[in-house]
Design a protein around this nucleic acid. Structure first.
Lengths: 133, 133
DNA sequence: ATGAAAATGATACCTATTCCCAAAAAGAGG
DNA sequence: CCTCTTTTTGGGAATAGGTATCATTTTCAT
């Protein structure tokens, strides 16, 4: 985990991610960052997101969908995803010890962490489904 | 969920996925299937995996890594992934009602299902790390 | 101030997956 | 077991998210 130098680009990417309530993809974040640094390269955004995730200062969400999403909140929490529109919200909950026990199987794995992804329908998408189905 | 026709290709893909204890990627499965159907196309494998997942007869794992992985066991269960080598095992456990409650947030989401991904180190990778770190 | 290490922008590249379409196979109805 | 409609297939081209490359610029310990 080498020390990262404090560049303007890195700083702005981090700030924008922090201030975003949702969980943006790299190119959504690129659009936001470009408002402040119009000449930044998309590669720089990707690079820094990857580095900061490796660093532990942000999280790369390994959730479904083909684009990776990033989370400025590095502390452990979980997510609900709307299967209708892809919207992702945070969830705070913990797993009982038995569950972690089960995951370690007869010591086959040393469990380091876990992530729970809930799938559901948000209010807006529930309304739409009722109209057409 | 339209009815799928019973083609030889579909059948073999399903059988091979069923008989695989691990959670193969599309092209790993392609390699296996080609031993029985040497002229099958990779596109056919992708297509059918997608259709069968939509159908509910298999599961597409929304876990990390750039390639999708598939699971011949469609019943609800969870996964541990070794951060060292990528190996994935099954985990059977359930979440307390409070957790689902938390995920639904004030009825903002109707939770349909969930998936827990544990991250850890398998025995082999633990041994390797001890040697070199 | 200065030089090694790290970072950037621009673009080429890679690779997983999907699209396209003419030809082949499935299966319902007679 | 023909016949017609629908679905599926193979295989190559296309797409898209992400990564690598490299000359140039920036950072920052000394």
């Amino acid at each position: 985990m080498k020390q990262l130098k404090a560049t303007k680009q890195r700083q702005v990417i981090f700030e924008e991610l922090r201030e975003t309530a949702c969980h943006p993809t790299a190119d959504e974040l690129y659009d936001r960052v470009r408002k402040r640094l119009p000449r930044i390269s998309l590669a720089t955004v990707y690079r820094n997101l990857e580095l900061m995730a490796a660093n532990g200062s942000i999280r790369k969400l390994e959730v479904g969908g083909k684009q990776s999403r990033f989370d400025g909140n590095a502390s452990q929490h979980h997510h609900v995803r709307c299967v209708g529109c892809g919207r992702i919200d945070d969830v705070h909950c913990i797993l009982p010890a038995e569950a972690e026990q089960a995951a370690s199987g007869n010591d086959a794995f040393r469990v380091l962490t876990y992530h729970i992804e809930f799938f559901g329908l948000c209010r807006k998408c529930r309304k739409q489904r009722n109209n057409c189905e």
